[in-house]
């Protein structure tokens, strides 16, 4: 019978070495390696001008609470990464966000920040909530285009930041359609797209995988991931403002 024939396999699985959580050491990923084709060629003219003046204000907005242990948040790390890359520039980073906020809701938060903080560069993280709730794609695209236009009118550059890599969204939420939409909007508007989904997939293959890390190593992995995302964003800013 079925049950009898499966029992040995089950026992083997339960007693096999490493069946439990094995706290494998985090891979070093010293450079948070990023293939060059994952850097967008689009330019950031206002950011470049700000760098030349030696002051850069960045406003980050997304569907996450901008609070938490400061060292673990990528926008906090972004300032460090930029300081390392551009030591002569004074960088300020501010974050706005709310859990479960759609693109439109994030934009409302960003717009308030545009007026009060007067950033040179806006980073707009979006797409996760839309994909999870399978919200109307056309509306999403309209919101993005509208936000980008308003940002330009306010005198700031803007970059779109893709959702995080997630096996769940890949398998169950049709995330590709929303990523494609973001790619299309970014290309049409000539702004850089931060391809975080793709970056994180690459890092996951090298072992930095938030969805597969043991509970004990999780804080370290999370901090490392934020560091890598921050470095990748800094690399994109650097590439988009090169003379």
């Amino acid at each position: 019978m079925l049950r009898r024939s499966l029992l040995p396999i089950l026992l083997a699985a339960a007693t096999a070495p490493g069946a439990g959580a094995q706290p494998a050491a985090l891979p070093s990923l010293s450079a948070c390696a990023l293939p060059p084709d994952l850097i967008d060629p689009a330019r950031l003219p206002r950011t470049r001008a700000a760098l030349e003046r030696g002051r850069l204000r960045i406003l980050v907005g997304g569907s996450a609470e901008p609070t938490g242990t400061a060292t673990a948040l990528y926008h906090a790390r972004l300032r460090e990464a930029l300081n390392a890359l551009l030591p002569q520039v004074e960088v300020t980073v501010e974050a706005r966000g709310r859990r479960g906020a759609t693109a439109g809701e994030v934009w409302t938060l960003l717009e308030a920040g545009l007026a009060s903080f007067r950033p040179h560069l806006v980073i707009w993280q979006t797409g996760t909530v839309e994909a999870a709730r399978s919200l109307e794609l056309g509306e999403f695209v309209d919101k993005l285009s509208e936000g980008i236009t308003r940002c330009r009118i306010a005198g700031a550059d803007i970059m779109l930041l893709e959702p995080q890599f997630s096996r769940f969204l890949r398998a169950n939420a049709d995330i590709e359609r929303y990523r494609d939409a973001m790619r299309l909007v970014a290309a049409a508007e000539g702004i850089p797209l931060l391809r975080r989904f793709e970056w994180m997939r690459g890092w996951a293959e090298q072992g930095l995988d938030l969805e597969r890390v043991g509970q004990a190593d999780r804080p370290a992995a999370l901090a490392r991931l934020h560091e890598c995302v921050a470095q990748a964003i800094a690399a994109q800013i650097h590439a988009s403002t090169r003379p």
Partner: peptide, 22 residues
């Protein structure tokens, strides 16, 4: 899903699928 996020080796994959089916 929680089990696979804890360990993604062959043993856990087999255990999740076999136990799940049973």
């Amino acid at each position: 899903r929680i089990a696979l996020e804890k360990s993604d080796g062959f043993a856990m994959q087999a255990a999740v699928n076999i136990l799940g089916f049973l």
